[in-house]
Design a protein around this nucleic acid. Structure first.
Lengths: 348, 348
DNA sequence: ACGGATATAGAAAGCGCTTGCTGCTCGGGA
DNA sequence: TCCCGAGCAGCAAGCGCTTTCTATATCCGT
């Protein structure tokens, strides 16, 4: 029914071994033989049986990319860059690798499930993107899993995610703390003193680091850190909207809102607008990430640009063994402050 | 080194066959035996070998989701919905299915490559999202590939993509034509007569259908279809920006711009703004898709809402055989006109 | 108490491919 | 002319799992 290696071999009048070698191209085969085999492959429309091949060779050409939320461009952009770097390259057999992205939906258990599934498939590499969950048992479980994967020969790379101790995983971490600090310093420099902060979900490293950066900037200016000026939420627009209303309720005299990311910031802008406040005349707003739509917002968003595509590409190359891992197995990727229309001197 | 089924069997004092049956749960196994096996699995930290299992069973638990651009929320939202519907369900062995998304980057050849890769993996199902490419040879190649996949037992579902003739693929197509027509009718109803249209890439069914709907609305009003009023571009913000400038150059008296999708529409708004025109006072703007950010734009975008998540979920269920295919193997999914702030009565 | 269902476990034959090893052929140096 | 080594191709042994078929208990009705 389905055509197998043996069929191709028969047609090309060679042994299955030879066909395999032609396909994998890692063993000397005479040019004439090769051609004959290739022709047979073509004529029979042969497609390699991946599982069989993976079983025999004890490796597969599958590469997994884990993201928290595939509908969020933050992850989309990284995933796209990673995949571009991986998908194009020649793989073991037949040329291509299967770079696939897995959506955890931010659920810790799904993260583990996908990791197991990829382990089961004997994936060649796994790239984990986005902040890690800080829940201790889960973090430990992930660390164990990563260790197992590495032991089984799967290359593990973390992109935009802090290193995991005691693990051979290569990490490319974003400098969330530094970026956040710079951002808040910018606002403080403009003269703001009453700033609200809309944080992401607790238990996420990204959330914590950005918040720490923000607070560090405040502390450096000797501004007391009123916990009522911080609200936690999700990394989406709606969350920003609601949190802003809450912040305004707590302190109507706020002059600036710093958001966990750009989507949140946009939600914040909407809430301010609907509350009759102008951005930045009445309240300044700042985001994080600098996603494509941020420059288009009205007013355009002051934010911290993260080189998502570059980091993704690099992670992809490392995962493919086409670029050396950074010294110490980890590198920090810095963001760049983008001052735009949504931040200004406080007028009230 | 790695623990295998046989190791588990030895530890549980049963035959490998029994272990396999416990894991797959489709054969009577005494409760006490099952428990013993499960304990051994746990103690040894056994992970099924996917390729071996797939080889022996001649099926895998991999499900592929093809998208054109993973960084575009349009696809992200659909992919997320599809994956949610697939990933959670119990698969053949060990419980879960590996739902993976593959990013074609809009390149026809990558589409084919991924299809081959999935065929090679003996994927259980494949869901193709987004418009098809109309280039004849490529379309034929895709049709052939889909047929082959189906023959090999892979379920094929098209989501937001027109049916492919002569193929067992189930299609859930968006009514792009009808939606576009309604949108333009809305604008015409407001009194607009000089409308520019920013289309997506040519050779994409989505592009053609939306354009046809637009033109049908114009024709119904007896408005001549000036080809200079249409500009083609990509489905992104920048493209909308540039195209709008071009349209304005061709006819500065334009009173409305209809865009291929929301991102393009936002780009159009930016261009208009920079040209000193107000939206909607001077020029109305309309988008398509109703992505999450569209309601947040200033002014909020008049557009056609496509039930991306619902369609994706349904496609996912069909792919899993958990929902019956629509009669005739295809269904049309309608959009809903969302009239918002970016469209108004022409004032000039 | 006996025969035949019924329930459960095992033996073994692959699934389609890779790869270490063996074997043949041919060319060239002595 | 002979021998040796390089270059190529084939043999066959698995890779780790599933599944058919067979074997052994176990249990029921009569």
């Amino acid at each position: 029914m389905t055509v197998t290696l043996a069929d191709v071999a028969a047609r090309a009048q060679v042994s299955p071994a030879t066909v395999s070698r032609v396909l994998n191209g890692n063993y000397p085969v005479a040019a004439s033989t090769r051609e004959r085999v290739l022709r047979a492959v073509d004529e029979l429309d042969y497609v390699l049986n991946g599982p069989a091949s993976a079983l025999a060779a004890a490796t597969s050409d599958l590469v997994g990319i884990l993201v928290h939320d595939i509908a969020d461009p933050f992850f989309g952009i990284m995933a796209s860059a990673i995949q571009a770097e991986i998908g194009g390259t020649g793989g073991r057999a037949g040329g291509e690798r299967l770079a696939v992205v897995c959506n955890t939906g931010g659920l810790p258990e799904r993260e583990l499930t996908y990791l197991t599934l990829l382990q089961r498939q004997r994936a060649a590499a796994v790239v984990l993107t986005g902040g890690a969950v800080e829940n201790a048992p889960h973090a430990a479980a992930v660390a164990t899993k990563l260790r197992k994967l590495a032991e089984a020969g799967t290359r593990v790379v973390l992109c935009g995610r802090p290193p995991v101790v005691d693990t051979p995983a290569i990490a490319l971490a974003f400098d969330n703390r530094g970026g956040a600090r710079q951002l808040t310093e910018h606002l403080l420099g403009l003269g703001h003193r009453r700033l609200g902060y809309i944080a992401g979900p607790e238990e996420r490293t990204t959330t914590r680091h950005r918040l720490e950066g923000h607070r560090a900037a405040l502390a450096a200016q000797g501004i007391e850190d009123d916990p009522r000026r911080t609200v936690h939420g999700r990394y989406d627009r709606r969350s920003g909207y609601e949190a802003t209303l809450e912040l305004l309720r707590r302190d109507p005299s706020l002059t600036a809102v710093v958001a966990a990311n750009d989507s949140v910031a946009l939600g914040a802008c909407a809430a301010l607008r609907e509350s009759g406040l102008r951005v930045p005349d009445d309240v300044s707003v700042a985001g994080f990430d600098d996603l494509p739509f941020s420059v288009d917002a009205v007013p355009s968003l002051t934010t911290v640009r993260l080189p998502l595509a570059e980091a993704g590409a690099r992670a992809g190359r490392i995962a493919m063994g086409r670029e050396e891992a950074p010294p110490g197995g980890m590198a920090t990727v810095r963001g760049e402050l983008m001052v735009r229309g949504s931040s200004g001197v406080p007028r009230r």
